[in-house]
């Protein structure tokens, strides 16, 4: 690994000042499970790593039924999944976060890092998208919130500007009669990157029809993909296999998969159909329970 400098500021202000000073050559370091591998491979370059794990706000998890869930960008996957409120209210998020790497990776990797890394296959991103999550970015002069669905712009690229830092993720409170789920397909049982993944969120009306729905995909487009039209097609429908199949077909149309070492385009498109149906099924079962 090429030499770089290291700083571990204890405040957001200090961290942002460092990022502003170094510009794009400064990289925030959260779990490091992707960043260190990229640096070691020479796929990425850095003059300074800003370790953000010593900033209290970045490692905090808070939940209340009104404002929902807020967790810092440096909260590890394990800590998030162990949190009782997260487990109770956001099983669709837990689905996605608990499968990022194995036990050791879970203790280091962060959802914030997963999002900033912006790989098309990032598992947590479709889960956050369907839950309507927002990302809080703080720079030297301002703070802004960006819907997660708009966060990634290309493989490895996000809306984050040099000098800005991802501080926290905010997930709305769980809506009544709603449910979410995330599923991915990998060749092994664990320790793999998604060949394809699908997140689904459903809300039922009092009459049992679908009042609202969101579907997002991983690993089948240059970025995690929010398929608004697939969710829209479900509104007003009953949560049946036929309705799910129709939504899945729309998602298959919308995806833009490629063939690479992890899977073929035709396999990925096929899997989108399977996974969207399954995720919708799981999400609707969660509404019932």
């Amino acid at each position: 690994m090429k030499p770089f400098a290291y700083q571990a500021p204890v405040s957001i202000e200090a961290a942002v000042a460092l990022l502003a000073e170094y510009g794009p050559r400064a990289r925030p370091l959260a779990g490091g499970t992707d960043l260190l591998v990229q640096l070691r491979r020479g796929a990425s370059d850095a003059a300074l790593l800003v370790d953000v794990k010593r900033i209290p706000d970045l490692t905090r998890i808070t939940f209340d039924p009104v404002s929902g869930l807020t967790f810092g960008a440096a909260v590890s996957c394990a800590e998030l999944c162990e949190h009782p409120d997260v487990r109770a209210h956001y099983p669709g998020l837990v689905d996605a976060v608990r499968i990022i790497g194995g036990a050791a990776i879970q203790n280091r990797a962060t959802v914030g890092g997963n999002l900033c890394n912006a790989t098309p296959s990032g598992d947590s991103i479709p889960a956050l998208i369907v839950l309507g999550a927002e990302a809080q970015l703080t720079g030297a002069d301002s703070t802004r919130c960006v819907p997660v669905r708009d966060f990634c712009t290309a493989p490895g690229k996000t809306v984050r500007q040099p000098g800005e830092m991802l501080v926290a993720l905010r997930v709305p409170p769980p809506a009544a009669r709603s449910g979410a789920a995330y599923l991915r397909f990998i060749p092994r049982a664990e320790m793999d990157i998604a060949v394809a993944g699908a997140g689904a969120w459903l809300q039922l009306a009092a009459d049992g029809t679908i009042a609202d729905a969101r579907i997002a995909l991983s690993a089948v487009a240059p970025t995690p993909l929010f398929v608004a039209e697939a969710g829209a097609a479900l509104i007003g429908q009953r949560p049946t296999e036929d309705a799910f199949a129709a939504a899945a077909a729309i998602a298959q149309e919308a995806c833009r998969p490629i063939t690479d070492v992890r899977g073929t385009a035709e396999q990925r498109r096929h899997l989108v159909g399977v996974l969207v149906k399954r995720a919708l099924r799981m999400a609707s079962e969660r509404v019932a329970s």
Partner: peptide
Amino acid sequence: YEGYVYNEAGQMLNANLLDYKLPTALD
């Protein structure tokens, strides 16, 4: 699970233990 994957230029595309998949205990 296992196999060397090459591109047409003869470069191996999965020279790591993420994409060259050894069975894990869970498999």
